[in-house]
Simulated scan of single mutants.
Amino acid sequence: MKLLNFKTENGVRLGVVTERGVLDVARALDTFPAESETPVPVTVHQVIEGGQDAVRTLERYAKQLTAEENGHSGLWLQEEELEWAASVTNPDKIICVGLNYRKHAQETGAQVPEYPILFNKFNNAIAAHGEDIPLPRVSDKVDYEAELVIVIGKEAKYVPQEQALDYVFGYCAANDLSARDLQMRTPQWLLGKSCDKFSPLGPYLVTADEVGDPNQLEIKCSVNGEIRQHSNTSDMIFGVEEIVSYISQHMTLVPGDIILTGTPEGVVLGYPPEKQIYLKAGDIVTIEIEKLGTLTNRMAAEQN
């Protein structure tokens, strides 16, 4: 199932992508209450926390309305009409894996890590598909990073690697924007990674069953239409199951946590110094991951 979030004057609403368009779940329930013992979830976090029961309930309800022939036209929206919200709106934790693609490690001159390199972002970094991203005044070296995002679906602690995918709800795309001058100022990367809106997520959250093998997905990034990154998640040093298991050995993962899994080669930082042209106001950055859709954001000058 493919989910999305969109903004209204009454707050963020959950949508389900169907063959008729995007089903506005809350509006549909107001008009056509569900005839099911299990409540239909009305927020993305209710779906994630409710697990497979919530997914099945929502899927049955959406299919029922989609199949009916008697109109209900007001319940469906077209994607081009939406003001998007982030595909996961309020994660408890945002965990990132650094240097997790072999060719990316090579282009930056870094050694292939023995263990996953972990750092974090915060909720101030969350942004949506189509949202302008402010370039911070304190940096002139903002870089793009196309990344696959793991969305945790069940509480996970000390999870064996062979069971780790059972704890994944689904996946989405992200741009792990990075202010390289701030990032490299100290050995800790956090400052350059956690500026406002530096983690746009979306456009969709796709359930794990629809994605299949997350370690075999084509991934791209383009800037103003020029492809800068083009790889496959098969180049990851640590696969999705390794990452989830490893993190769970050290902290408890909870439903709605998101894990950014690293970026492939082709970032500005990997170019020779004389060819490094960092993002500027007006640049359009597009992240595309197989089965997960296309995430696009415009860079903008910071206003305050």
Score class of each variant (00 low, 15 high):
residue 212 G to Y: 11
residue 100 N to Y: 07
residue 30 D to P: 04
residue 201 L to F: 15
residue 193 K to G: 08
residue 284 I to W: 05
residue 213 D to R: 08
residue 241 E to K: 11
residue 238 F to D: 09
residue 237 I to A: 05
residue 217 L to A: 09
residue 103 K to N: 11
residue 206 V to N: 13
residue 99 L to E: 06
residue 79 E to F: 03
residue 287 I to W: 06
residue 231 S to W: 00
residue 144 Y to S: 06
residue 246 Y to T: 14
residue 136 P to H: 01
residue 97 V to Q: 03
residue 160 P to D: 12
residue 263 T to Y: 07
residue 22 V to R: 04
residue 18 T to A: 05
residue 301 A to T: 14
residue 184 M to V: 11
residue 100 N to K: 07
residue 281 A to S: 15
residue 4 L to A: 05
residue 104 H to S: 05
residue 133 I to H: 10
residue 109 G to A: 08
residue 205 L to E: 07
residue 65 L to F: 01
residue 63 K to N: 07
residue 290 E to Q: 15
residue 280 K to I: 09
residue 130 G to R: 02
residue 41 P to Y: 04
residue 254 V to Y: 06
residue 56 R to Y: 12
residue 131 E to G: 07
residue 121 K to A: 05
residue 51 G to F: 09
residue 136 P to N: 03
residue 277 I to H: 15
residue 165 L to N: 10
residue 252 T to L: 02
residue 155 E to L: 05
residue 107 E to H: 10
residue 239 G to D: 15
residue 116 P to S: 09
residue 26 A to R: 08
residue 204 Y to Q: 02
residue 12 V to I: 15
residue 271 Y to V: 05
residue 132 D to C: 10
residue 92 D to P: 06
residue 179 A to F: 05
residue 68 E to I: 07
residue 140 D to P: 01
residue 210 E to F: 09
residue 132 D to P: 14
residue 180 R to D: 02
residue 17 V to S: 12
residue 256 G to D: 00
residue 181 D to R: 09
residue 227 I to E: 13
residue 277 I to P: 05
residue 123 N to W: 01
residue 17 V to T: 11
residue 10 N to W: 05
residue 78 Q to S: 13
residue 163 Q to D: 15
residue 228 R to W: 12
residue 21 G to A: 05
residue 220 K to Y: 12
residue 214 P to N: 11
residue 130 G to M: 00
